[in-house]
Simulated scan of single mutants.
Amino acid sequence: MQPSDLKNLKIAVVGAGYGGAAAAKALSLLGAHVDVYEQAGRIREVGAGIGLRPATMNRFRQWGVFDAIADVSSPSEYFEILTATGDPIMKETWPADGEQTHTHLIHRGDFIDALMGVLPEGMVHLGHRLETLQDRGDRSALTFANGTTVEADLVVGADGIKSVVRRELLGDRGPVFSGEHAYRAVIPVDAAHGMVTDDNLRMYIGRGTKVYLLPLRHRDQVSFDITALCPDATWTPEVTKDELLATVAGFDERLVAIARDLDLDTVNIRAVYDIDPVDTWHTDSVVLVGDAAHSMLHHQGQGANSAIEDGGALADALREADSVKEALARYQAVRKPVTDELQRISRQGWTEAEISDVFPGQKPATAAGQE
């Protein structure tokens, strides 16, 4: 699209998480008028650490925000998979793009704060929970619970796994339970019983349980994540310390000790969900990004990276296409094959034998939500 057309484009981004903030930054650099509408009254990202891949970091370099992210993250050289008791299975060097760009490990909260900090003042509007979306072809109207109404030439649905935009746009089959729970905490490095000595991610695999140690040494902490098979689909389940410890029975005693020392009030406890692949991500004036388009299980560590790549690809498509309609089709053609494959791979996290222990008689694909 011509620069003059882009500058006249009014864009409403629904959601201020990874995908929304990244899309807002990328689209604002086109010269478009961008507003972000977030339902929360304040931006607060709970959870644990994530790895930002080289392609993601290069997007940040392209957008002029690399230093803001690098200042609150640690570069990492490799990812190691070990048995429950610490015997090596494989060690894979993170793919790097040149000498300057490596995978960076970062806390989710620091990540969101850094992204919010590089958006122009006044762009983000808090306390705006989307209620309805009317797609009028070349323009859409949004109504929020606080009574605000907005019209936009392009609506970007970045409102997560329970996306209202997706529901209004396409109807909604809703989130799919994976048959897993995730227990996540951030603890001081000193509380890791000597298991964190560098800036590299390690995953320990036992029967029906995976334990991740993701160092955040720039803040003298480590992200501790237990992912375990469990049939309880309650979104925020109640879990006792004994139940938590049962998931790590037989693991390295230092990992068991970390789990034993946890204060459950500081542990983020969630059933793990994704969504089935969405056939179409857009109309002529509404488009989905991030978890709203392709929420995936966390086994590949690609959720946040995919959301950010979406924002960059959407901006690229608008710059290269002759119209918004053409740009949205181009964006989907570029991104959907990639995320479809990541969704598929992420659902292959367990063996049939492991799943049958928790879901007797079921196949791996069924427990992962694929009928």
Rank of each mutant, 00 (worst) to 15 (best):
D159I: 03
A233K: 14
H181A: 02
A246E: 07
K325W: 09
R167P: 07
G117C: 01
R202K: 15
G290E: 01
I345F: 09
H299G: 06
A114H: 04
M296I: 13
Q100G: 12
I50W: 02
R344M: 09
T148D: 13
R173I: 09
L115D: 02
V155M: 10
G98N: 04
W235G: 01
D357L: 14
M296V: 08
G117F: 01
W63D: 05
G250K: 09
G361I: 02
K7M: 11
E131G: 09
L328R: 10
I43S: 15
D172F: 12
M296F: 01
I205T: 12
E243R: 09
D159F: 01
E80M: 05
D190K: 15
C230T: 07
P88F: 01
V211T: 01
T283D: 04
A55F: 10
F251R: 06
K241Y: 03
S73L: 04
D340A: 11
A182D: 04
A191F: 03
Q302R: 09
P337Y: 04
A353T: 11
I258R: 02
R44M: 11
T227A: 09
A271V: 02
Q370M: 14
G41L: 10
Q370Y: 07
Q300L: 15
I69W: 00
T197P: 03
D261H: 05
A317C: 13
T148C: 10
Q62E: 15
E243V: 05
Y331A: 05
A246W: 05
S356H: 08
E352V: 08
I269G: 10
D67E: 13
A233G: 08
G160L: 10
S140L: 05
T266L: 12
A292W: 00
Y18D: 03
G160K: 10
T103C: 15
D35S: 15
H282S: 12
H298Q: 13
E354G: 08
G31C: 05
V211R: 02
L214Q: 10
L255D: 03
K10L: 04
V338C: 02
D5L: 14
I308R: 08
W94H: 12
A367M: 13
R347P: 02
V256W: 08
M90N: 09
A249R: 15
K210T: 12
E243W: 04
T149M: 15
E92N: 13
G137W: 04
E45T: 10
G147D: 07
G41H: 14
G311P: 03
G311H: 03
T240L: 05
K336A: 11
I112C: 06
I112Y: 01
H33E: 12
T143H: 14
S295D: 06
H193M: 00
Y183G: 03
P277W: 05
F79K: 11
T283R: 00
H125K: 15
S323Y: 07
G49P: 04
A249V: 14
D357G: 11
D113G: 11
